[in-house]
């Protein structure tokens, strides 16, 4: 009974979101739409990192690397041949890539798959490492990806990056992928396979004693996370229409990590909430870096201030509310209804 009610409410929520997006598209300006798009992409990225770190306990700092792979692969598939010829000034694009073309959906999927393959490739060696060493090794991987992207001019156009990427990633694609990611990961972590991942996170030794092939499960989780990170990168590339290696600095991973930590490790609803709040906050904080003129009074912008406030916020969270907004709990329909009922009863009294 509860299950069917949950299902109906889920459908209603998705419909409501659809309606909101439809309204937003007609009524909000381009800047606000852009923020809405970024919210969706950041949620995808944070959900995937939460799967890896929050649910499986693998401290990975390689997200920027997977995003870069997804972004480059999908962009090369959707860039028109003429555009490719125009932007590859240092070295022409290598052959099959120079003519290869794919529809947007396929390109994003390919970006995700490529990232997942890289995830698989590096996971076999690095996942034998635990804790902080894994973090450093994956960070190393992301840096290697960036350095390679900077040098492999025949594929990535080197430091110049790719420009004029078709802007296919509209609000529908982004939120479509976002919902798919949420659905997929939620189903995964709420299944017994998800229980197994959590077991590995909580006590790896006990998990092994329970007959769980720990390395295999970690590889699966890591690769799925890499897939969605690649998808997020692909969407991001099409949304921004230009990418270059500098975009995929460690800072990018830091932003995603911040969302996951703030939302709560091992909480999907926390990630969604934090994804919205932090993305909006980050955009809103841009104003502290822009010069403001009030009447004849001129306040110059303070470059760097945005990240100062942002990193201080992370420090506050980690020092004073380590479990984030939600801890490991989730907001469920049953929970909401329960709270409403209790409140209703109180009001009646």
């Amino acid at each position: 009974m509860y299950e069917s009610r949950t299902k109906r409410l889920n459908v209603a929520a998705v419909a409501l979101l659809g309606f909101f997006l439809w309204w937003a598209q007609g009524n909000l300006d381009g800047y606000k739409i852009q923020i809405l798009n970024l919210v969706a992409i950041n949620i995808i990225l944070a959900l995937s990192l939460n799967l890896i770190y929050g649910f499986t306990g693998l401290f990975s700092l390689g997200h920027a690397g997977f995003m870069a792979i997804g972004a480059y692969v999908s962009s090369l598939l959707i860039l028109p041949a003429a555009q490719k010829e125009m932007i590859f000034l240092l070295e022409p694009l290598v052959w099959p890539l120079s003519v290869l073309q794919a529809p947007f959906f396929v390109a994003v999927l390919a970006g995700g798959v490529a990232a997942a393959l890289f995830g698989l490739l590096i996971s076999l060696p690095v996942l034998r490492l635990g804790g902080d060493y894994l973090g450093i090794a994956t960070l190393g991987f992301a840096e290697i990806v960036r350095v390679v992207a900077n040098n492999l001019s025949g594929i990535t156009n080197g430091a110049l990056g790719l420009k004029g990427i078709p802007n296919h990633a509209n609000i529908w694609w982004n939120y479509g992928w976002c919902l798919f990611t949420l659905y997929f990961i939620a189903r995964l972590v709420n299944s017994n396979f998800g229980n197994v991942l959590k077991a590995i996170r909580d006590d790896e030794t006990a998990a092994r004693a329970m007959g769980i092939d720990v390395l295999r499960c970690k590889v699966v989780s890591f690769s799925i996370g890499a897939f969605f990170a690649g998808v997020g990168g692909a969407l991001m590339a099409s949304l921004l229409t230009t990418i270059d290696p500098k975009m995929f600095l460690f800072l990018l991973t830091f932003n995603v990590l911040m969302i996951v930590v703030a939302g709560g490790l091992g909480s999907l609803s926390g990630t969604v909430i934090a994804g919205v709040v932090i993305t909006v906050l980050l955009e809103w904080l841009r104003f502290v870096e822009n010069p403001v003129t009030i009447g004849s009074f001129h306040i110059p912008g303070i470059p760097g201030m945005r990240m100062v406030i942002f990193s201080m916020a992370l420090l506050f969270i980690i020092l004073f509310r380590r479990e984030g907004i939600m801890g490991m709990r989730e907001i469920t329909w049953n929970g909401i209804i329960g709270v409403c009922r209790r409140k209703g009863e109180k009001d009646r009294d």
Binding site: K198, A206, M328
Partner: peptide
Amino acid sequence: RLFSNETVLQNVMIGCHV
């Protein structure tokens, strides 16, 4: 060494995985 963040039922379900 229980899986301390999981429920009693989930702990046993994890044992069923193998």
